[in-house]
Write a protein that binds this DNA or RNA. Structure first.
Lengths: 109, 109
DNA sequence: GAAACATGCAACTGCATGGTTGCATATTGT
DNA sequence: ACAATATGCAACCATGCAGTTGCATGTTTC
């Protein structure tokens, strides 16, 4: 499961907003999700396809309607595998290194 | 501080790898960071500029060398403010809704 | 069966962006 | 002072991608 696809999918604000909408109410149809935008239904379809390819959204057909469900797993995967790594180098480290540099340079030149 | 800039910055695999390198060893120069790629130094400069604009990297000049420091704060911001929201609709919710649908449709059509 | 409804598919457009090349600038070292 | 080193800046190119328009397909309803 490509983590790159998830990052790229999350890079677009419209797509993040789509996920927000699904978080508010899960299982919405295309038409429901396409309402209240300044973009066409087809554009929303494309965004949803990208979210689906990234496994962030699952779909289910009910008759002629396509229902969309939020899948938070990839987001948690990112949080767990990727973000956790950046917890190690503590904020202090940045301050420390900057302080080291300043004393190395000498402020009073 | 635009969260969109952070998402967009993280969307590129090269930039994520740059952050990884800085996580391994903080305070590297441009030349150090530009080594071992199949892209030019100038390309790396551009990536670093984007990371810096997103506040993911802080820079410090030491003479003619530019040192780069990882700033994990925006990543934690994303984790805290954005990802936490997607913890509410539990994984069960997806399964539940799918089950509801199936019983609604009737499997035997 | 025909009209209305929900969605899909394909071609095209414009703009953002990743990457390159070439040259300029500033700092270090001899 | 001069050569080498480290980086910046600008122009340019190619590709990706968000968005549109137009039409096709499948499903419900009367």
């Amino acid at each position: 499961m490509s983590m790159d696809a998830v990052f790229k999918a999350l890079a677009d604000p419209s797509r993040r907003q789509l996920l927000d909408r699904l978080r508010d109410r899960n299982g919405q149809t295309l038409n429901e999700l396409a309402n209240g935008w300044d973009m066409t239904r087809q554009a929303v379809t494309k965004h949803l396809a990208i979210l689906e390819a990234a496994n962030l959204v699952a779909t289910e057909w009910r008759g002629r309607e396509k229902l969309h469900y939020l899948n938070p797993v990839p987001i948690h995967d990112i949080a767990d595998r990727w973000i956790a790594q950046f917890r190690r180098p503590h904020l202090d480290a940045l301050a420390d290194l900057k302080r080291d540099l300043e004393s190395e340079n000498g402020d009073e030149t």
